[in-house]
Every structure is written in C-alpha cells, then in structure tokens.
Write a protein that binds this DNA or RNA. Structure first.
Lengths: 143, 143
DNA sequence: TTTAGTATTGAGAATTAATCTCAATAAAAT
DNA sequence: ATTTTATTGAGATTAATTCTCAATACTAAA
C-alpha cells in the first residue's frame, strides 16, 4: 500500500485510539486496489477468496471508519444496499444510474458544485457532503 | 379529497386494472392532507389513530403505487427508512438535511436543473428522476 | 521482550425496514 | 344479484446491517 495513505490511516487510528489490525489493513488495501462502487459483501467475498481472514462484521465496521475519515465515500443508490468507493485524493464526481442495467456512470460538473455551495452560503447551511444522483436509461439500454 | 386528484387516481387505477379501495383512498387522502416527508410507519400510525383500518402492508403497497404514478415522491435520506412526500402539481424542489437535528429543508434552483438536463443530453442519458441532497448543519444547530 | 492494559475480532444472534403468503373479503363487471 | 377478479391483513419471511461477548491481538510501558 502507498506509504502516504498508510501513514494517514495510522495517524487517524492513533488519534481515535484505534488499532491497526491485519483486517483493517486488508479492507483498505482492497478498496484502493479495486476501485469501483462496491457492496460490503463483495469486499468480504473478495477478501475471503484471497485467503485473507476477515469477517463480514469487520468489513462493515472498517468501511464505516474509512468513510468517517474520508478514505471512502458511501453511496446509497436506492436498492437497499450501501456501496463504497475509494475517494482519498481523487477528484469529486457524482453518479448517473441506469435503471435498466444498473450501470453506474460518473459525471463531473463544477458549475453545479458552485451553485450548490452558493445555495448553502445563502441559507447559512454548513455543507458537509452531498448526493447528486441521476436515475434514467443509459445509452446502451435505449437501443 | 379534491375531485381532480381523485379522478386522476381513479383513472390510473382503472388503466392498471386496480381497484379503488377504502384503504388506498385513505392513504392518498392522508398524504395530501399532511404534507411533509413521511415514513410508512408514520402514515400507518396516523391512520390507525384516526380509526381508519389499514394494515402496514397496505400502506407500503399503496405508497408504491402512488409513487409509480407520480402522486408521491420517494426520498432516501440515508437512514435506512424511505420517506414519501406528496408532489402532484407542486413545483419541484430538492432537500437539505441537517445531520444534527434531522430537519429537512427544501431548496429550489432552476439553474442546477438546467445543467443537469444538459449533462444528460450530452451523455445521451434519458433522465427519469434525480436525487440531490445536501447534508450538513442547519443554521439553528450551528449555534 | 514481557507484561499489562485496552481495543478488536468472529460467529452467530438480533434488529429492522420492507416484502411476501394465502385464505377471507371487497370491489367491479356482467 | 351473481360472478369474476383484485385486495386485504396477520404474521411469516427476507436481507442488509448491527450487536454481543468471550477469545484474541495490538500497543505502550517497564
């Protein structure tokens, strides 16, 4: 794992009086390696098949820590399962979701981001995070 | 209940070979009356305490129909419970959610809507619905 | 490096929103 | 009024997630 990331993780853990365990390391490493929009069970299965010993409960717990400290972003796509994507140091984007095939497409629009910030300033709302998801039919599924 | 709305509901039901039952009427009437961002259990409890006989299962079933045909909008605020708001004939808005007190504030921004439409056109994505939620700390909770 | 102190883990139970089942019932069509 | 068809309700079921707690693994201090 990249040393900078690992050091940041160590720093966060120390600050919060948490310990760096094999399991936590494995979950973070796995998220960094296979970028995507991933369910906990998927992460769990993949670690298992790599022979790494991590329980489902620990995956859930770790992913929550990683989200809290900005390593991961949690996505709720409305199908009852949370997804996580690695985000540390990457540019912000939002998501389009195809309601036919489930494909997730990323989009970026800085104008929208600016307008969003402005709304929050105007309404004296301290923005922490946001969700902007477009649901519809992707190019492929339209044919 | 407003006659226009009722007639539209009747038309939808007929087209889908569904029947207009006391229960369906009660759920719709309740949603129209008490506008807000409502959980199914809340709707259920309120109907119960009004002496109206509707089961939890029927509330869930009815709310799904009403969403499908544009009477209601479903909100997923990331707390694992779906909310519904009455929307028929009302202007579109999105939501800010205070992560301290849970308050839901509505906001409107037509510029963002336009940009959003443009993105979809550019990417050849047929937009059906969208979610745009801002999570942060509201004015009151900042003090 | 050993020990003492504290946090973490895993297996399975518990929780919880939402959905499903199916016999009894109610609405619509004839 | 009768027949046909959809709906309802009670409770069982599902499925994602969280919880429990004894056994285990990390960390810091001696």
């Amino acid at each position: 794992m990249d040393k900078k990331i690992l050091n940041k993780f160590k720093a966060v853990l120390k600050k919060e009086q948490l310990k760096l365990t094999k399991q936590r390391h494995a979950v973070l490493a796995n998220m960094i390696k296979s970028k995507g929009h991933r369910e906990c069970d998927e992460i769990y299965d993949q670690l298992k098949s790599n022979g790494e010993n991590v329980s489902r409960a620990t995956v859930y717990r770790t992913v929550a820590i990683l989200e809290k400290y900005g390593f991961l972003r949690k996505l709720e796509l409305g199908d009852g399962r949370a997804r996580y994507e690695y985000k540390l140091g990457l540019d912000h984007h939002d998501h389009m979701v195809c309601i036919e095939c489930g494909q997730i497409i990323e989009f970026v629009n800085s104008e929208i981001e600016l307008l969003q910030d402005k709304i929050c300033i105007d309404m004296n709302f301290k923005l922490v995070r946001h969700i902007h998801q477009l649901f519809g039919v992707c190019e492929i599924c339209q044919n």
